[in-house]
C-alpha cells in the first residue's frame, strides 16, 4: 500500500486526525497518467484522435458489416473450407504448444538464478527470452510467410515462438518462488547442477509448468485467428477471405463458430488445470 501509515500525529480529543498529504510519487503518478492519456488520445502526430462523440454518432450508422450480423450464416460451419480451417487451427495450436513446451522448459529454468548453471548462461537466456517476448506473433507470421511462403508452417512457427514466450515467462517466475530446502539438500548430497535441477527444481515446478502449457494451448487457439490474415493458415484464412470480399454474413458465422470452440476449450482446459494444482 502506498499510503504512509507510520505517522499518526497526536490529535486533540474530538478532532479529526489530519489527512496525510499525498506522497510526491502519488502526485507525480497522477499527473503522468493524465498527461500520457491526453497525449495518446489527442489528435496529433503521436496520438490516435480518440473521441467519445464519434462512438455515439457512428454506432447508429447502418453498415453492411452489421447487417451481415443480423442474417448470420450458420450453414458455414458445415462448409469444407471452414471445417478444414478449424482442423488446421487445432493442428497448428497442438504442434506449436508441444514444441514450445519442450523448448520453453530449459529456457525457463535458465531464466532464473536458481536454475541457470552460471551467470553467463543466465544473462544470455534472459535477454534472448526478452527479445522473443517483445516480438508479436503477427510479426513472426509475416516474416515466415515472406521467407518460406504461405501455408501452415509459418503459422506453426509464429505460435511456437508465442508458446516459448508464455511458457518461459510463467515457468521462470515459478522457479524464482520455489522452496530452497530441496535444492540445498540436493547440493549437500553432492548432486551436480543438472541432478539438482532434475531432483529439486523440476518436481516443484512441474504441476505449474503443465498448467501453463495448457494455458498456452488456449492462447495459441485464440492467437491462430489473426495469423490467417497474413497468410499463415488456420481459421483466419476463411475469416479473412469473407472479410475481404465483404461476405459478412458468412464471416460472422465463422466468428460465432470460433467463439464457441474457444469457449468450450477454455472451460475444459481450466477445469483440467484446476485439478492439476
Amino acid at each position: 500500500m502506498s499510503v504512509d501509515q507510520r505517522s499518526a500525529p497526536p490529535t486533540a480529543p474530538g478532532r479529526r486526525p489530519r489527512k496525510p498529504p499525498p506522497t510526491p510519487f502519488a502526485v507525480g503518478g497522477t499527473v503522468l497518467l493524465v498527461a500520457v492519456t491526453l497525449a495518446a488520445g489527442w489528435d496529433w502526430t503521436y496520438g490516435i484522435a480518440f473521441s467519445l462523440t464519434e462512438i455515439f454518432e457512428n454506432f447508429t450508422n447502418v453498415n453492411p458489416a452489421y447487417e451481415g450480423l443480423l442474417n448470420i450464416d450458420l450453414e458455414r460451419f458445415r462448409s469444407e473450407t471452414v471445417r478444414a480451417g478449424f482442423a488446421e487451427t487445432f493442428q497448428m495450436a497442438t504442434i506449436a504448444t508441444m514444441l514450445g513446451a519442450v523448448v520453453g522448459l530449459p529456457l525457463a529454468l535458465f531464466n532464473s538464478v536458481t536454475g541457470a548453471p552460471n551467470r553467463t548462461v543466465y544473462l544470455l537466456v534472459k535477454n534472448v527470452n526478452s527479445v522473443i517476448r517483445a516480438i508479436p506473433d503477427l510479426v513472426y507470421a509475416v516474416f515466415f510467410v515472406a521467407a518460406i511462403g504461405r501455408g501452415t508452417l509459418p503459422g506453426v512457427l509464429a505460435l511456437f515462438f508465442l508458446s516459448i514466450a508464455v511458457i518461459a515467462k510463467l515457468t521462470s517466475d515459478t522457479v524464482d518462488g520455489i522452496d530452497q530446502g530441496p535444492i540445498e539438500s540436493a547440493r549437500a548430497s553432492g548432486a551436480s547442477h543438472l541432478q539438482m535441477v532434475r531432483t529439486a527444481v523440476l518436481p516443484q515446478v512441474l504441476p505449474n509448468y503443465v498448467s501453463f502449457t495448457l494455458y498456452t494451448f488456449e492462447i495459441n487457439l485464440r492467437g491462430s485467428a489473426v495469423l490467417g490474415f497474413v497468410g499463415a493458415g488456420g481459421i483466419g484464412e476463411p475469416l479473412n477471405n469473407y472479410y475481404q470480399r465483404g461476405q459478412y454474413d458468412r464471416m460472422w458465422g465463422v466468428v460465432l463458430g470460433f467463439f464457441l470452440v474457444v469457449f468450450v476449450v477454455d472451460r475444459l482446459s481450466i477445469a483440467l488445470r484446476k485439478r492439476l494444482l
Binding site: I132, R133, P136, D137, L162, A165, V166, A168, K169, L170, D173, T174, G177, N208, S211, F212, Y215, I219, G223, R273, K274, L276, L277
Partner: peptide
Amino acid sequence: HDEGRDPPGRSHTPLA
C-alpha cells in the same frame, strides 16, 4: 510474458 492474460506474479499459481 507475451499475450498473457494473467497477473504480474501475485501468486505463483495465478492460472489455477
